[in-house]
């Protein structure tokens, strides 16, 4: 039996044990997101503009993540609007940073991965990098937006010390999730650098390292932007009615 399928079935079992019938919805939402990410890759390889594809598919991913995981419309609505606003700003930021970073494609450390491949494939790796930066952050944006929107809707906290503590906590835990999430992938690269005794100046200019670290930094920036934006949207809705 295929290992991935077996792992997926095990996850479904765990989800149903913990979430009941709703566990199936969670798994379907994960599968839809996965399918959309694979579709993105196929469309990019098929010659569509990577940035346009990732923005369009990104909207769909935000919608599935937010509306399938959050049944209450007064929580999901503001979270979705806030995510869209942040995404619009974030696309610009990612394009700007990756224009200057020169980290598209592969580094010297990727040599083994590239063996036997033609790399002159006529698709802009610069734009694939922008797509990667955007897609890897969408989950975190959606998660933070839901957390803020749900927190403000249930606790009915008035703006003030209690609320700012809650927002800070959401940012703190989201940073942990992202930090360790990316660090997991980083660990092999760090061991590589240490084993081959790269100097500090080599590391902070290294294509792979700078590319990956910029992705983490940008993702954290996106999450921090999401939290006050969502709070602002929730409050302006409450004021209106």
């Amino acid at each position: 039996m295929n290992a991935i399928l077996a792992l997926g079935l095990a996850l479904l079992t765990l989800l149903i044990l913990v979430q009941g019938r709703y566990g199936l919805v969670t798994l379907i939402s994960i599968l839809i997101n996965l399918g959309l990410m694979i579709l993105t890759v196929i469309l990019i390889a098929g010659g569509f503009n990577p940035v346009v594809v990732s923005v369009v598919v990104g909207l769909m991913i935000l919608a599935t993540t937010i509306f399938m995981n959050q049944a209450k419309p007064d929580v999901a609505g503001p979270a979705f609007v806030a995510s869209l606003l942040v995404m619009a700003v974030f696309v610009g930021l990612v394009m700007l940073v990756f224009y200057f970073s020169q980290t598209a494609g592969f580094g010297n450390e990727d040599g083994e991965t590239l063996e036997g491949f033609s790399t002159a494939i006529g698709v802009s790796f610069q734009q694939i990098l922008i797509a990667t930066g955007l897609m890897s952050t969408l989950g975190a944006i959606a998660e933070a937006a839901i957390a803020v929107s749900a927190g403000l809707a249930t606790n009915e906290i008035q703006p003030g010390a209690g609320q700012s503590a809650m927002l800070a906590e959401i940012i703190g835990t989201a940073i942990n999730t992202l930090f360790f999430g990316f660090f997991g992938g980083f660990s092999a690269l760090f061991i590589w650098f240490a084993r081959l005794s790269y100097s500090f100046s080599q590391i902070i200019n290294n294509k792979v390292f700078v590319g990956e670290l910029l992705e983490v930094l940008l993702a954290v920036i996106a999450v921090i932007m999401t939290v006050p934006t969502t709070a602002w949207i929730v409050h302006s809705r409450q004021r209106r009615g």
């Binding site: 994960i30 995981n69 694939i128 890897s136 952050t137 989950g139």
Partner: peptide, 21 residues
Amino acid sequence: GPLIGVLMMIFVAGTFAEAVL
């Protein structure tokens, strides 16, 4: 649910360049 999504997207988006290649 959203947390599983966060990790999944970090893992999968990281493979875009190689997958297109």
